[in-house]
Write a protein that binds this DNA or RNA. Structure first.
Lengths: 231, 231
DNA sequence: GAACGGTACCATACGCTGTATGGTTTTGGC
DNA sequence: GCCAAAACCATACAGCGTATGGTACCGTTC
């Protein structure tokens, strides 16, 4: 039990009790602000007004916190109901996943973690449910989800790598690139041409590539699905 | 200059001089053996028979070593020549990338790094060259590469997450999963069904999903390419 | 009202990390 | 033999995760 219950009248401010959830929530905020490496047990403990070792009463290890953070991120994603048409559901799921991962870029590297939490599992379960309800065979569900998830996760990773400003345009590095332009033209002519005629053009934003790939993939899955239905 | 040139006759064993390349090569070996977190400046220095601070004469920082490691990995990938048909070239590139990333799983997390080396840039340049030679418009090159690279990288990441034994089958965790099977059946029925009827079946190996997605994507790109050629 | 078991917290310490600072030695060329 | 540059080194600092072994407080029970 907490030393100072919320009902304590003596304290002017009812202090929120320390829990794993609160620690995880705080860790997410820290990571959002300064990247994953700015999450430390000592910093977390300080923010919770306890000593580092006291944190271990609520949490098994730092990895335990990472697991919690990843599951917290998954819980931000939309989980479509089974009544939605599968294509719209997958589209929404992909867009939502990308948006959430763009909001928490540190989560992408945590994604390689091997102990999924309830939100993660629920997310997967719901997705399988949608495809099954639409008549997908189990192997096709496997194909479709592997393909979609690989693409979305990979895209999020590529996107996180790019040095973008808030608008999605190429940011401050543009000058640096232009400075090296001549050197690049010699060694990597195709890359230089692509930079000049596509990427550095005013209207270009890498984020727009997302929908192209997504449409192509969904189109292909649709084709597969129809062929198994009729065949 | 090296203290003991290779030609030195006094030393029974001609000691290889310490260089950035050698440090990076060693770091790759360390990471292959024990994961990325087993790469430390102190361990590297010890293996090179120098003190930690001496390493900084050859290398700018630990991040510099990471950059080198990633570029070393990229240099292991096949770079197809422009004379190869684009589809075969992309297929080969994707397979090679996946194989190399499976050999060095730690490289996947390093991939988010923002200072590409010469091998990385050369790899990109060659790929653009193949597509351009095949008549792809620059925007279509952008679409195709974003899609392919996102998929391959995402797949490699998913694959690295899975607890696989050498054969590619689900390994020792199978019993753990089966133990939790009943609990899962209640909370996540679709997931449980998929595990039982697909993933835990004898013949199933997640790695096989790779080719399905790859074919679907290449098929889609081919369609796009043809439509821009004829249209 | 005293004793008790669990809950929540804490102090100290160990071994590890990357690297800043400011030397010292060794070397090839003159 | 001298010198600048190259290669290397010792010391130190601030931070990290966490093992170990405590201590203060709580509601419950006798």
């Amino acid at each position: 039990m907490p030393r100072k219950p919320i009902e304590t009248a003596t304290a002017a401010v009812a202090r929120e009790p320390v829990t794993r959830e609160r620690a995880v929530r705080l860790a997410v905020a820290l990571a959002d602000a300064g990247g994953i490496e700015s999450v430390s047990m000592r910093k977390l403990a300080t923010e919770l007004s306890i000593t580092p070792m006291s944190l271990y009463y609520h949490v098994k290890s730092k990895d335990d916190i990472f697991d919690g953070m990843l599951d917290a991120v998954y819980s931000e994603m939309h989980v479509p109901g089974v009544d939605v048409a599968w294509r719209a559901a997958m589209l929404e799921r992909a867009r939502s996943t990308r948006a959430v991962l763009a909001r928490h870029p540190w989560a992408i590297s945590l994604d390689a973690r091997t102990s999924p939490g309830p939100a993660t599992l629920g997310h997967l379960d719901a997705t399988i449910g949608v495809l099954r309800a639409a008549g997908f065979s189990m192997p096709l569900v496997g194909h479709a989800m592997s393909l979609l998830d690989s693409y979305v996760q990979g895209f999020a990773m590529q996107e996180a790598t790019l040095p973008l400003d808030a608008s999605g345009d190429i940011g401050a590095v543009t000058e640096d690139i232009l400075a090296q332009q001549e050197m690049m033209s010699n060694a990597f002519p195709n890359l230089a041409e692509m930079a000049a005629t596509l990427i550095l053009q005013p209207g270009y934003a890498y984020g727009n590539e997302f929908e192209f790939g997504l449409e192509l993939i969904l189109h292909g899955i649709e084709r597969m699905h129809r062929s198994t239905e009729s065949g």
